[in-house]
Amino acid sequence: MAPVERVQDPGIRDWNFPRGIASVVLMVGYAGEQGVSTTRMLAGTGLTEATLRDPDAQIDAHIELAVVRNLVRELADRPALGVEVGRRYRITTFGIFGFACVSSPTLGEAILFALRYLELSFTFCLPVAQWRAGEFVAWVHDESIPADVRQFLVERDVTAMHQVMSDLLGTPAPLVRAEFRFAEPAYADRLTQVLGVRAEFGRMHNLFAIEPAMLEQPLPQANEHTWAICLAQCRDLVDRRRARTGIAAEVRELLVPGGADGFAAPAGIDTVARNLNVSTRTLRRHLDAAGTSYRALLDEVRRALAEEMLTATPLSVSDVAIRLGYAESSTFIFAFKRWTGATPAAYRRERALRR
């Protein structure tokens, strides 16, 4: 499967990505069972009950965060709230993203897919996967999460990840260890019961680990044909969600090169800022307010151009890297694999076989 000491980052850099409505529906439903009205749960969000009934609704991450805050405020005295809510996230909660995971050949393949398309999830914590001798570790980063809901979201997201892995395997996922940055809570035994391992608290990082052999285990509902269909649908969904408006759309348009052959290197941020008649600092601030960054938009443009060049031109991988502004081919290959899960050469071969 994966070599020793391999690290796989998620396909996103922070939790501020558009998301579906299903997670909010789940939390509102849980709160309702505890006697909290939908009106109180949606206070300050601009959401309506009609929105909750629309399976295609998309919301800003800050809207879900507002719902989280309402939930934590309304049920502040309920022990293990994050754990209990996290257990409600099943593979079916995630729609086509979940179907892609469940039809993956192995747990390891499902995890790699989930990391690449993490923006189709509802997570606020960002997992980084590490394969090393005798252990697979998921490092769960919470540094950018607001402090008032950080512990709840760590508990919710880690429990949800464990629950989804259990759904994929058809049996409780056997963890070998779990660690959390927050202090040991009074309900630590409940975490042990749910995760199946005694967690350690007050540690440097949030993490959980499983035996690497579990990653090779075939999933009971694996189906190559269904998996391929789901992968294509997930990619289309990501592309639609990444459709940009406002300042981000203007930047993206300026990043698309206009060389003689259509494949000049994308413009640098200083050049883009000058073309928009703003300072570089102001541009960064505007993009941050829009929930994106120059680097994220540059990655989107580079990925689209790379895929086009690898599919429609005979350019070598080295030439593609140079035209995209990379100083070294190895840097481009690493970035392309992070975007797509495949090397440029493998991507080109796969597309050639489809034609």
Rank of each mutant, 00 (worst) to 15 (best):
H162P: 00
F180K: 03
E224D: 15
W139R: 10
V128H: 00
E119A: 13
M161W: 11
E224T: 14
L153M: 14
L126E: 02
A160C: 12
A183P: 05
L175Y: 03
V197S: 13
Q193M: 04
V176E: 09
W131P: 00
E143I: 09
A199H: 02
I210K: 04
G170H: 09
L168Y: 04
R156W: 09
T123I: 09
A228H: 11
L120Y: 02
Y187E: 14
N223S: 12
G196R: 06
E135N: 09
F208E: 02
A183N: 12
W131F: 11
F182K: 04
E109D: 15
E155N: 11
L153P: 01
D189K: 07
E184V: 08
A186G: 13
Q221C: 09
L169Q: 07
L175R: 10
V158C: 09
G134W: 04
N206F: 05
E179D: 11
F208G: 02
G108E: 00
H141C: 07
E119D: 14
A188Y: 04
L191G: 03
R203F: 02
A178W: 01
R132S: 11
G202F: 09
P174H: 13
M214S: 08
E155S: 11
E143A: 12
V197M: 14
A213K: 08
L219Q: 03
V137F: 00
Y187V: 04
I145Y: 02
R190Q: 12
E184S: 11
E119H: 08
D142V: 05
A199I: 03
M204S: 12
G134S: 07
R116L: 02
I145S: 06
D189W: 06
G202L: 07
I229F: 13
A213Q: 06
A129K: 00
Q163V: 12
P212C: 06
A199Y: 01
M214L: 14
G196Y: 08
A188S: 08
H162W: 14
V128F: 00
P218E: 08
F208V: 06
T192E: 10
V140E: 13
I229K: 14
W131E: 01
S144G: 10
M214H: 07
Q130A: 10
F201I: 15
V154W: 04
W131R: 05
L207A: 15
